[in-house]
Amino acid sequence: MAEQEKKPSRIVTWLREHPMPACVIVLSLIATVAGLLLGGINRLTYQSPEEKLAKNLNKAYATEGKWEEVPLDGISVEAKDKTVSVTGVYKNTDGTDVVYIYSTTAKGYKSGLELMVVVKNDKIIKIMKTSSNETLGVENNESFLSQFYNIDITTIEGFRTNKQKTDGTEVNAVSSATKTSNAVAASVDLVVGYHKAIAGGAK
């Protein structure tokens, strides 16, 4: 090691003797290598928004069939909670079953609570979080979410938690996480309205 320090390579000696160009050369070299590395990794890992959506849809409901986006033109459902909106509706016919997935966004404790609500034959079978900044994980709490499952949503007014004063079938909010519970219930409530408008007209 001591011998190495006594005899530095010619490149190192030159860089030490010319500090100004050395700064430019070294920083440029590091930036170039970093850029090439990041470019390569980005090429390997890039996912388009369509690919991300397809991945999420198949995670919410695994099927061989192709998902079709349902146009929302002309469908107007008023949300009881103004922070909630439905961002997309996707339909898939899996054998004799008709499956809809409603993509929603809402504000719970923080904004950006995005869910996918899976409705199979007019009954909610799964609520999956796609993005969230909530702290207590209510959106993953199956005992809370299961209160929305297996109810024919074309026959009910909607959903509300025991902390909300709106109309609808009551579910119990998770204690000390009321805002997130309300946001999830409001999202599902809006999905009920949309589902009635899209698929439940006959009932």
């Binding site: 500090p19 920083l27 970093a34 990041l38």
Partner: peptide, 22 residues
């Protein structure tokens, strides 16, 4: 041995940022 003292902090941040982004 080749990072000049004057630009060592920008060089370190550049290296760290690369690995974090990867």
């Amino acid at each position: 041995n080749i990072i000049p003292d004057k630009v060592r902090i920008p060089a370190y941040v550049l290296i760290i940022a690369t690995f974090v982004t990867v």
